[in-house]
Amino acid sequence: MKVAGLVLATALALAVQSSIGRYVGSAAGLDLVLIVVVYSALTFGPVSGLLSGTIAGLVQDAMSTGIIGVGGLAKTVVGFAIGIVGTQFIVEHPLPRFVVFFGASLLHAVLFIGVYAVLGARDFGDPYRRIALPAAINAMVGLLVFKVVDSLPGAEERRHASTRMRR
């Protein structure tokens, strides 16, 4: 059930990402798939985080024109790291969640741009502008996603189940 939900959420994020990109452009750097990965890592722990990061990242890579595996690697590390953070700290209030999403976006951007820079396969121009603003946008949208999911029926039961799963 959890796996099906994650696959569905990832597919939906990819579909929405590639649909809204036509209208708002990619300048904002919003990465809905990364948000799903961070959400799954925080909710279900490091194993779910790294598995969802791997699958979502690889599919996203295949849908793009870049090297397959770079996004997968970045999202795997982010999913695993955020999963560990979720087991060690209480991340249930807006401010810590914002910090986690912001940090996850920063880490993802550093890894993604870093691997491309090491391989010399792509130049990202001014990396600071390409990292900071998208990180803030992803953090805000991530908070919104948590808010929406928390407001859905059965949120309390899901929270207890995910706490047991993380431990």
Binding site: S18, S19, G21, R22, S26, D31, V33, M63, S64, R130
Partner: peptide, 15 residues
């Protein structure tokens, strides 16, 4: 007809 844009914000492409 253009049916979708890039799945990753770092790439400028359409389907």
């Amino acid at each position: 007809e253009v049916i979708a844009s890039a799945a990753t914000p770092e790439f400028q492409s359409v389907s």
